[in-house]
Design a protein around this nucleic acid. Structure first.
Lengths: 234, 234, 234, 234
DNA sequence: TATGAATGAGATTTCATTCAT
DNA sequence: GATGAATGAAATCTCATTCAT
């Protein structure tokens, strides 16, 4: 909860008033990021939006990047929690997955400003990108764990769990970004939350929950086992 | 070949010398984008790298963004061509897909500087993002066409071809970006070109080439038909 | 003892607790000045070092400069006292001088933080420089008095006592600064307290305690009498 | 000549116009330093004074400190040259010294803005102080050499040449600063160039050109030999 | 065509000091 | 007496783009 280890002045907000102000700045930052994008956001605008002086900002955060980091960690904590919940409840894997995908989609939507900000910051600042990769790695690891569980039940033999997890995370993350932050691809299609989630879930499900002997085209072509794939030319 | 309609001074480099200089700038831009990223790239560095003056640059391009556009269109033309080739040769769908994925991976790698640049520019400049979505839409449409063909053969019933295509494009595009431009996710996994391509291809294949009656967990759970999925709360 | 007329809130710390806090701030200021230099010292750091809030500081001092003034006057009082002591004891002039130089060296060393601070403040703030010159003038006057006494005994005829005193004060002051505050000149020489003091004293002694007829090179060259010096072109 | 290795963009001013502008900035910087002091000088004022835009400044110098460095090196080169000249002409040592002291005084006066700036920068910026000490060391070494020559002729036995040189350099340097930059000590004395130079020279001469058997007070007191001095308490 | 000098708006960050509690 | 949150003015440096030569 914004108690990140980076970029925040040591104790941060000792009094109740201070804590309120810190939250004021966090919320203001989200709104300004949403409106102008992280890279274009001006600190002075954040302060204005918070109804505070720009100098006050630095009592709580070391830099614009530090607020973003705080928001990003908040987001990540929430997401991990939401995505893990259904699994903890012992719901069957695919139902859990459906919930998790739905949670991602809606959390992403709610947290759009910080997410878009994270992407932008990662593009210009290698150090920030590094941090974000570390955060993102937690999610990847969770997904990979899910794949391993499926594999233990005979699904998706030969698939590299971590690499597949990385690819699936890319899919869901970037799809959310394109449709929520950028207005979607320029193709003729109607989209609503349910349809989006269902599409992602369907792809994901079948990408993972398949068996060797499945009567897929892959099987017919003798390409069913991953190892039999044609050579990649790289 | 840099014959974009935007951002290039009308006739573009008539003389032989002029054409040489234009190429000099394009190549220099790629190198500098690769080194510093598009957003951090300084025009003066591009000129330095090209061995020309920065003023000279404006004889060939209207702006920094214009070089990127030229490079991006070059890339797109090449990619469409490469990805279409196997299908034209009448290769079976999944083999063709494998080739296409491989072509994407290796083209992306070769064109990394401009691709990463495109990402960056899209995140900060809405107008550029718009253009890039138009370009990207061509690829989405192609993928969707492939899905429709598969559906005609009984695969993936109920899947929205365009939305699925958008998601799969997100997967492959972002995965390439993460692993080629950003050094990969911070997880413990070895990666090489073949493994990357195979993983993407495997996921893609099974995400699309499945049938209703497949004995997947999905089937067992009665979730096989897309329409039967639980409600998304988004 | 911090009884300056400038910059201290009128009555200054009546209660015992208040006096303790005032001393806390004075000591903390010295440590921070020593560490960061006066100009770079932040009030917040002084407060932190004192274990008090920065607001509390202003119960005792009107400004950052005011603490420095208090410390500087303390220093000056101590120095004048120490330097005068040997003369009062009736010790022969040169022995007294040796003691005085030694006292200056060691006092300067002990009071380094405030001294360096005084220098820094003098560079940026003309008003402060003015005050410091007034304080410094007391020392110059003392030195000049010593020179006049020597001249009464036939030494250093023709030397302007005040100007010479100013020059000798510059020598000792700046030499102390260079070797104690700045780590010394970048030349290959070992230095210890005794050697430093002896060198200063030796130069000072011979600069002042000479007679017209001395068999110096100056005499040989007919330059012995100050008035005979070649013209300065300045 | 301002071709310092630090802080200047690589080639600096290729065309004649560029060189003119560079000089414009150097001169403007001197004037502004003289007027406001280095620490208080604003870059925008320097640009204004030069009749150029502030952005233009950075085509020639990396920072405010870089201009100062360039000016300081110019000064040092000039000073070493001027001070060495009389010695090269084979003038007797004390006459040469007189000329050298005079040259220092007048050069310092002419170069006051940069010199005062150097002082200021040295007090606040340790890195700059380091550089300046390296430059200053050249002068100290020269002075020490002069002392060694005098000692070879029997003068000032036992005096440490480098330490004494450091002290004498401090004397002349700080005296110049006090009287030229700060308006002099607050004592009642008239000063003109000749008097200043003569005083410095007289002190310096007798500080160095003395012999053991001189009938000074020191001798009478048995303090003539440096080693016999009372103990410094440090 | 080529050069490189000139532009200038713009935003981040610092920190001594005040003051309500 | 003590606290610490709030203030806000101020100045450096960047860099895409233009234009005279």
């Amino acid at each position: 909860m914004a108690d990140s280890s980076w970029g925040l002045p040591e104790p941060t907000a000792k009094t109740r008033k201070g804590q309120a102000t810190e939250r004021l700045f966090l919320d203001a930052a989200r709104r300004v990021f949403a409106r102008d994008g992280y890279l274009n956001a001006k600190l002075s605008d954040i302060a204005l939006e918070a109804g505070k002086s720009s100098g006050s900002f630095y009592n709580y955060f070391d830099s614009k990047q530090a607020v973003l980091t705080a928001l990003a960690e908040d987001f990540n904590a929430e997401l991990l929690e939401l995505a893990a919940a259904p699994y903890r409840r012992g719901v069957p894997a695919q139902e859990a997955l459906f919930e998790a995908v739905g949670a991602f989609w809606s959390t992403y939507k709610r947290r759009l400003p910080e997410l878009a900000g994270v992407f932008q910051a990662s593009m210009t600042d290698e150090a920030f990108a590094e941090r974000w990769r570390a955060i993102r790695a937690q999610g990847i690891t969770s997904i990979a764990e899910g794949i391993r569980v499926a594999q233990a039940e005979g699904y998706a033999p030969g698939l590299d769990p971590l690499l597949a997890a990385s690819a699936l995370a890319s899919m869901i993350e970037h799809f959310c970004y394109v449709w929520q932050a950028q207005g979607g691809d320029a193709v003729d299609v109607e989209i609503d939350d349910e349809k989006a989630v269902r599409t992602l879930w369907t792809l994901w499900c079948h990408a993972v929950f398949w068996r060797q002997e499945d009567d897929t085209g892959a099987g017919q072509l003798g390409l069913g086992r991953t190892g039999d794939a044609p050579r990649a030319e790289g």
